[in-house]
Simulated scan of single mutants.
Amino acid sequence: MAQFLLILLYSFVTVIIIQVIYYLLIFGKFSFAKFEEKEHLSIPISVIVCAKNEAENVKNYVPLLLSQNYPNFEIVLIDDASSDETLDVFEDFEKKYANIKLVKVKNNEAFWGNKKFALTLGIKAASHNNLLFIDADCYPDSDHWIAEMSSSFSEEKSIVLGYGAYEKVENSFLSKLIRFETLLTATQYFSWAKLGKAYMGVGRNLAYKRNEFFNANGFIEHMKIRSGDDDLLINQISNSKNTAINFNPESITFSKSKTSFGDWIMQKRRHISTAKYYKFFDKFQLALFFSSQLLFLLLTIILLSFQYQWIIVVALIAIRYIASTISLGYSAAKLYEKDVMYYYPILEIILIFTQLSLFFKNIFSKPVHWK
């Protein structure tokens, strides 16, 4: 037994080293980064919104896009064969505003319910090379959202990753859990982008140049995969030089959190299901991080249960939590999510075991995708 516990202790030390490297050296690329004030440009922008049965949301949020303080933009509204009043709402906007272009998508047997098909039609209809994406249930937090996101484009930077936050819901633990998961995910993909290894973006707040899309033949490599119109495309087209991040407060978008744990679980199952299609390195580093998180918890429980070298174990636990709290704390401050850190590490523990259960659920059943 003593020999077995010694092996577990050495394994625990290895896990702690991996975790500290992630939190301080890798995630630190974003956590400790400073805002870069950039000159707001006036390059032409096409804002693309794809909606399916989102009548109420587009009524409320399209006016916020129209009121953006930016001199040269159009809004491409895509109705993906909605069965509610979404198309009627879009047609009303099209009649009133000259800078709105409407794309009507009919159900296609080859691409039934595939958001990527609808987005492709919208991208082809866009007048400009610079594309800025936002989901139909999202809204910008500032009337300088377009100006801020477009400022990150350059001759070299053709992809811009933004932060898509969720609204705070008072006295809701689920809301805090969702926002903590969103914070952790953003810390990961922003950090790897800073390291020249961008692997994903979120369609709630994402920009790229249309020529990048066409050079990759659009979504053709993963058209049959129902999800991944954002992360799988970025995983495919990003490289060490062409991707920028923007976390300026005026670049943030918001959407409402899921109000039931079941709805959120279904949403996360869709997101997680695309990760297996990432490049090998991206799958490896994500799996290594999650495995080290899970092993940290399990080994902590085992070693403390046996009180084996407990002083060393407690010291290692403290080192890990100091590193993670500092790193995530700085990220939370940048992304205006500081309040969720008050519930760390409880949120982290729940999230780890939730993700583990989702992994096994996705093995035995497929999640439902686009509406």
Rank of each mutant, 00 (worst) to 15 (best):
G329I: 09
V160P: 03
I48C: 06
F261R: 12
S11P: 06
I311L: 14
D143W: 10
Y70V: 03
N239P: 02
N242M: 05
E109R: 06
F117R: 02
F32E: 05
S255W: 07
W145N: 12
I312M: 08
L41P: 00
A315F: 13
L184C: 07
S292D: 10
N235Q: 02
F281H: 04
S324H: 04
K106N: 11
S152R: 05
S331E: 03
L102C: 07
A165H: 05
K194N: 08
H271M: 14
M223A: 13
A318I: 13
F306W: 07
I45A: 10
K95L: 12
F364A: 09
V76Y: 04
L358Y: 09
P367T: 05
T14L: 15
G28S: 05
T259H: 04
F289P: 00
E156V: 07
S142E: 03
A125M: 03
A81S: 05
Q309L: 04
N114Y: 00
Y23V: 00
L102Q: 06
I220T: 15
Q188A: 12
E39V: 02
L299N: 13
A136W: 07
F290K: 08
I16A: 14
A318K: 02
F73S: 08
F12D: 09
K96G: 03
E167D: 13
F4H: 13
F27A: 09
M1N: 11
D282S: 15
R204I: 02
G122E: 01
V58N: 09
N108S: 06
E170S: 13
F90E: 11
L297V: 01
A193S: 12
Y308A: 06
